[in-house]
Design a protein around this nucleic acid. Structure first.
Length: 851
RNA sequence: GCCGGAGUGGCGAAAUUGGUAUACGCACCAGACUCAAAAUCUGGCGAACUUCACUGUUCAUGUCGGUUCGAGUCCGACCUCCGGCACCA
């Protein structure tokens, strides 16, 4: 080793060595226990940003830790290389999306390698290459076979900037997930994947992963699926045999229904109004609302608007007639697109009823379970004539509800659904908020949907042996109109696989989230030409032990990938339900906006980005990574700081200098056998600290508490500095203690600053590097040493710290009590006052209570 | 509006089951080295009061209250900030 710490030299040296020895290539025949560490794969935008650096530093720390602990670690990387930016670059700058993407990958791969992230590059994959997207198409055909992929015309989310359809997940909040443009609604024929078939499992299986996933993410997922229990009820229509089916979660309030309200898009509207004088008005109203939605998108917080259709519905429970309205606040997409309006017990219905002077009838008496137990049910009927100022949406006891009066809501809901079923006008039901995944994209840079339209045979799937359907090389990117694929005759024109007649190919491509739904299975078997992956390999490596990424994907990628996993299970490819055991969502990396006190996510548009390459050049990859992991807990926001990074360099340099000072004495093997050594008090204290540090860091890794791990390393180095032994004259015992401390620091530093750790490990006299097959390097704490061998027990009087007493472990309560009461200061404070009691917490604390 | 999460020094933060609050680092201050600066090293660094000094005392984990011998940690109310969802019947 050199006398001075030169990060650049050290980092290049070790990157080259790792590369030559294939140090990070995972072998499935390796008999050791497996560990799959995975980070969300990057989009190859061209440049790594600090968010990537954080993501991969976290993953790498874990991968190193597990390797040093003797696990067979799989740590792969790839490229989420389909998607809009490449196509936008093609439109704006006339470049070929493929070339643009490949160049970006090349550059970013270099950046990752300069950071020294320990990836198994032999498994690298990229979504835009035919050997990958062939399998997207294969999965699509499998879904088609099973009726899970289908085409329908519907109102979809349209991003006007990117000129393509978006899924509901990608347009949450009415904003395009990628470009932030306001999303519009359009009626289009689109491909959908039936994720709704898996809605129940997506909620139910949360049980399987709740121990390892952030609660926040699971809650968002379960909210997104939006399971709700309720009932369908069919309202009759006067002078007609038609029925209006509504969904309600509060069938117990049905006697309070004073209208039935349809969504403007409801298909029954036309039929019900056939021949009615009001039809033109209703049509005009429905059209107006539709227009509003198209321009306003989802974000609208519109005023409620409605129109009485003149149609009369019949409440099947009471036989009562109620008017049928159409209103903008009833959504076609949820439930049945029709609701019973119960103003007294629903906020929205209340607001609507007030505006249009519909009757408000109370049918639930607010009452608690305690009250109903205390009083006979018959006597608690509420006052129905009292005017309601607001809706009461809680449960209670039914009133004004015919034969059901007096029942509790909870009971009535069950009984009434049962009653509806017996009488054939309804049944209990569960509905979900989640809707099918729209995967069609009217864009070029994605996997083509493998379907052909034949004038004779209709829609025909591309046969498996003709996959992949390749993207052409000569598309024109005008940025206008339909998909560029439609303008490539060689692509569009084909023959029907059935009858060989001239036919046309589908020109839609698949959502890029299809690629990322299963990519981590492909890492297991990246060159397989016969299947997406070998099922035995999946058995070996899956599920992912730790997944790391941003929480922006809490409902997009993470819900799709759970869906895809369940689908693969149903195909018999795997035998588990959930792909990821533990998930970590890291916090954002922010930087100060110049001249202000505001911290915002680094971004090009704000001009507050930090270039990882510059950081590596200035401080080294090790220091950059060390700072990123030390500066904040992984799930917190990370505020970028250059002085903080300097601090990380300082620590590495201090450690390096310490190793340099000792390396001759230590690498010569001096030190002697421990049992014969006589340790001084300070050497014992150093050893204690060493073993405490090992114990602390080892357990910190479980919870991924890297910041406190690094702090512990720093503390140990500080104590080693204070120990202040001279290598030239140190006793064998002192040398032993120093070696033990230095080796522990260096090895435990490897997850944070691997290059420097390797270099110093070598400097301590080890050859062959930190990672050698079958060698477990991670130190093990001696429990006796890690336990404190001398206790400094605080003594409180009336809860305030007044003194301390030194004791050894195993000290009895009586001994502690006695020494506390014998303490001078305590005696002075007691000074004749009564000692009420003495509280002794074994080995921790004494509190003398006096009066 | 509804649902989550969080409030600890100038800053990022730490603190087993309630048991020495402020570890570690950044910034800052002082000293050493230097002609000087940088780097490095050493020391200091919550607030107020107290002592010539050693020291000592009191207060302090968003606010108010509660439980407890003892509360950053538990309970209740409130304030502030952040995030998610937003007519889901």
């Amino acid at each position: 080793m050199d006398e001075k710490y030169f990060p650049e030299q050290i980092e290049q040296k070790w990157q080259q060595r790792w590369n030559e020895s294939g140090a990070f290539e995972a072998k499935e025949e390796d008999p050791r226990e497996k560990f799959y560490a995975l980070e969300m794969l990057p989009y190859p935008s061209g440049f790594l940003h600090m968010g990537h650096v954080r993501n991969y530093s976290i993953g790498d720390a874990l991968a190193w830790f597990k390797r040093l602990q003797g696990f067979n670690v799989l740590h792969p990387i790839g490229w989420d290389s389909f998607g809009q930016p490449a196509e936008q670059a093609a439109i704006k700058r006339g470049v070929n999306p493929r070339d643009w993407t490949e160049q970006n990958i090349k550059h970013m791969r270099g950046q990752l390698q300069r950071l020294g992230i320990s990836y198994d590059w032999s498994r690298e994959i990229a979504a835009h290459r035919p050997d990958y997207y062939k399998w997207d198409q294969w999965f699509f055909l499998k879904m088609l076979e099973r009726g899970l992929a289908y085409k329908k015309t519907s109102q979809v989310n349209w991003c006007p900037k990117e000129e393509t359809v978006l899924s509901n997940e990608q347009s949450s909040g009415g904003i395009c997930w990628r470009c932030g443009a306001k999303v519009e609604k359009r009626d289009l024929e689109q491909w959908f994947l039936r994720i709704t078939d898996y809605a129940e499992q997506l909620v139910a299986d949360i049980k399987q992963i709740e121990a390892g996933w952030p609660e926040k993410v699971l809650k968002r997922q379960s909210d997104w699926v939006g399971r709700s229990e309720g009932a369908y009820v069919n309202f009759g229509v006067k002078d007609s045999d038609k029925k209006i089916r509504v969904f309600t979660t509060r069938i117990d309030t049905i006697y309070g229904a004073t209208a039935v309200i349809l969504s403007p898009e409801h298909p029954l509207l036309n039929e019900l109004l056939e021949g009615s004088a009001l039809k033109p008005d209703v049509d005009a109203f429905a059209e107006k609302i539709k227009q509003q939605r198209a321009t306003r998108g989802d974000e609208a917080e519109e005023e409620k608007e409605g129109l009485n259709t003149g149609v009369i519905a019949i409440n099947p429970f009471s036989g009562e007639t109620v008017p049928v309205w159409v209103a903008n606040y009833v959504l076609m997409e949820y439930g049945t697109g029709a609701v019973m309006s119960v103003p007294a017990h629903d906020e929205r219905d209340f607001e609507f009823a007030q505006k249009y002077s519909l009757p408000i009838r109370q049918v639930i008496g607010p009452i608690t379970h305690e009250e109903i137990k205390a009083e006979p049910v018959e006597t608690v009927a509420g006052d129905a004539s009292a005017e309601m100022r607001e809706s009461y949406t809680g449960y209670g006891v039914l009133i004004n509800s015919g034969e059901w009066g007096g029942k509790l809501s909870e009971v009535a809901m069950k009984d009434m659904a049962e009653h509806a079923k017996l009488n054939g006008f309804g049944e209990a039901a569960v509905t979900y908020r989640i809707r099918d995944w729209g995967v069609s994209r009217q864009r070029f840079w994605g996997a083509p949907v493998p379907v052909i339209y034949c004038p004779n045979c209709g829609m025909v799937p591309v046969p498996y042996d003709q996959l992949p359907v390749m993207l052409p090389n000569n598309a024109a990117f005008t940025g206008t109109g339909e998909s560029p694929l439609a303008g490539v005759p060689e692509f569009v024109n084909t023959n029907c696989p059935n009858c060989d007649a001239p036919a046309r190919r589908e020109t839609d491509t698949m959502d890029t989230f299809v690629d990322s739904s299963w990519y981590f299975f492909r890492y297991l078997d990246p060159r397989n030409e016969d299947a997406p992956f070998d099922t035995n390999l999946a058995k070996h490596w899956m599920p992912v032990d730790q997944y790391i990424g941003g929480d922006s994907h809490a409902v997009m990628h993470l819900i799709y990938t759970r869906f895809w996993t369940k689908f693969m299970r149903d195909l018999g490819m795997i035998d588990f339900d959930e792909p990821v055991k533990r998930l970590l969502t890291q916090g954002m990396v922010t930087n100060r906006i110049e001249g202000t006190d505001e911290w915002k996510a680094m971004s090009k548009s704000l001009g507050n980005g930090v270039d990882p390459d510059q950081m590596i050049a200035a401080f080294g990859a090790d220091a950059t990574r060390l700072f990123v992991l030390f500066a904040a807990p992984v799930e917190n926001e990370l505020r970028w700081s250059e002085t903080g990074t300097e601090g990380a360099v300082r620590f590495l340099r201090r450690l390096y200098t310490m190793v340099w000072r000792w390396h001759e004495r230590l690498s010569s093997g001096s030190g002697g056998d421990m049992p014969t050594l006589e340790f001084s008090e300070s050497a014992r204290s150093l050893r204690r600290k060493t073993h405490q540090t090992i114990a602390k860091i080892t357990s910190d890794f479980d919870g991924l508490h890297f910041n406190t791990s690094v702090a512990a390393l720093m503390e140990l180095l500080n104590q080693l500095t204070d120990f202040n032994a001279d290598p030239a004259t140190a006793s064998d015992a002192d040398v032993f203690a120093v070696r033990e401390a230095l080796e522990a620091i260096v090895i435990m530093l490897a997850p944070f600053a691997p290059h420097a750790a390797e270099e110093m490990f070598e400097g301590l006299g080890h050859t062959g590097g930190l990672l050698q097959a079958g060698t477990r390097r991670w130190p093990v704490a001696d429990p006796e040493l890690a336990a404190r061998d001398e206790l400094e027990i605080p003594i409180q009087v009336n809860g305030k710290l007044r003194s301390r007493v030194i004791a050894s472990p195993g000290v009895t309560e009586d001994e502690l009590r006695e020494s506390a009461l014998a303490d001078e200061r305590v005696r002075a404070l007691i000074n004749g006052r009564e000692v009420v009691k003495v509280i002794v917490v074994p080995e921790r604390l004494v509190n003398v209570v006096i009066r």
